[in-house]
Design a protein around this nucleic acid. Structure first.
Lengths: 248, 248
DNA sequence: GAGTGGTCTAGACCACCAG
DNA sequence: TGGTGGTCTAGACCACTCC
């Protein structure tokens, strides 16, 4: 059975690209179960016709969802829904955003917020001279009143003005975006280690408890390094999930 | 200074898509340092002209590299090289492939290879009835003669014929590909925990040593689940690295 | 205003898969 | 053999950035 996506419509007056409007509508249809696992999407040319779009535009929308693992295309066969229960692909979002959208009521305690000379590793990641002052930030993140992670971030001093109040009521990435920083790219390293006594105390866990660690360098759309982060999470409460796909 | 990519050529007789040929040549130029960090790529229309390609084809090649974090495009400005020292994006490859390409001389000891009823978690991941027999596989992976990870895999019984010999001389994914399985998509969860006494003994590490864990369900291009894996790695020897990008 | 990438179109031909 | 996606072309117009 080939599903008709007649419900989809695009708004040509909107500044949002047509392919993206279509992709979002398809994504919603998949997440709502309207397009169940295995559903055929129907051939691209007909689809384009129904929507009043060209085939390349429709293909681009489909390609976006294929890339994110929601659809599969097979030549001679068609396009099908792969994953009804979608895990969101690990995206360029913050822990705060993720917890909020999961309804986990994140809270934050600012442990430190000041300017300090950049340690070697940080200076190197941000492309600054060693010892250059950087905005240095340490936060304890809790979810449902349970300590979850310690977040250490380093930012160029001129990037964004931060206050304890702002940081306790929202996420760092939201503040950066509000300050006009457009995050574009990040490289991340995920590992594990045992908690030191200090780390264990902060997290309310036992010494040597397993920690999940993440280091990240984020770049804006000009290629400038705008953030270095070194975080650790209680492994009993947190994991990273993501989708890998093989579309050339 | 705008770099001329006159060196690039495409072979129209090749079955490899033109955009992909171009993308690979650009990637090599970036990795070799021929296109250093910050280099301008030069305008798309001229580039297309020089290469004898259409602009959409050139854009597709560039878009592929933007997606992988090697290039940045800015409207009104141009396309630049972002990352000279590229970390390979976490891709749908096996640990064996990764170690081989890093020159780390992986070796494998097969600890178990048999058919057994699928545990609940495995049956659910593979979409099989509970207790259905599955190919069950446990391997110890070493790099430079040092124990690195224990790999446990579960596969549908009819998928591929495996022998201890084959598994000790190459990677599982290579064997699956050779058997005609086309891996297309995987969902992964990365976490951490402490090693049990048994796990520690296998890895030659101490009890309670931190482990990095990874669970993966992989699908072929028809959307069929073809592998469930539950692996653990010595955290002192292994990390996951990947690039996140924000191209819609 | 000049130059860049961002989007979109309307075709064309090919490769693969199923019946 | 017919239908599907995969690739490619040659344009067009727009939005943004910088001078």
């Amino acid at each position: 059975m080939s599903f008709s996506v007649a419900a989809a419509t695009v708004d040509r007056a909107s500044p949002v690209p047509l392919y993206y409007q279509l992709a979002q509508q398809l994504e919603r249809a998949i997440e709502s179960g309207e397009l169940p696992r295995g559903a055929q999407l129907g051939n691209e040319i007909v689809l384009a016709d129904q929507l009043g779009l060209s085939r390349p535009t429709v293909r681009r929308a489909i390609g976006y969802l294929v890339e994110r693992g929601l659809l599969v295309r097979r030549r001679g066969v068609g396009t099908q829904v792969v994953q009804p229960r979608v895990r969101r692909r690990l995206e360029l979002t913050s822990l705060y955003d993720d917890l909020t959208s999961d309804g986990q009521q994140p809270t934050t305690r600012v442990l430190a917020l000041d300017r300090a000379p950049a340690p070697d590793l940080v200076a190197q990641a941000l492309g600054l001279p060693e010892g250059e002052p950087v905005l240095t930030l340490e936060r304890l993140r809790l979810a449902r009143n349970e300590p979850l992670a310690v977040l250490r971030n380093y930012l160029p001093v001129d990037l964004v003005a931060l206050t304890r109040e702002a940081l306790e009521s929202t996420g760092l990435y939201q503040l950066m975006r509000a300050a006009g920083v457009r995050l574009h790219l990040a490289t991340q390293t995920v590992g594990a280690r045992s908690a030191s006594a200090t780390e264990a105390r902060l997290l309310g866990d036992r010494r040597n408890a397993p920690l999940l660690t993440m280091q990240r360098t984020a770049y804006d759309d000009s290629g400038r390094a705008v953030e270095f982060a070194s975080h650790y999470y209680r492994a009993s409460l947190y994991t990273f999930e993501f989708v890998l796909s093989n579309t050339r």
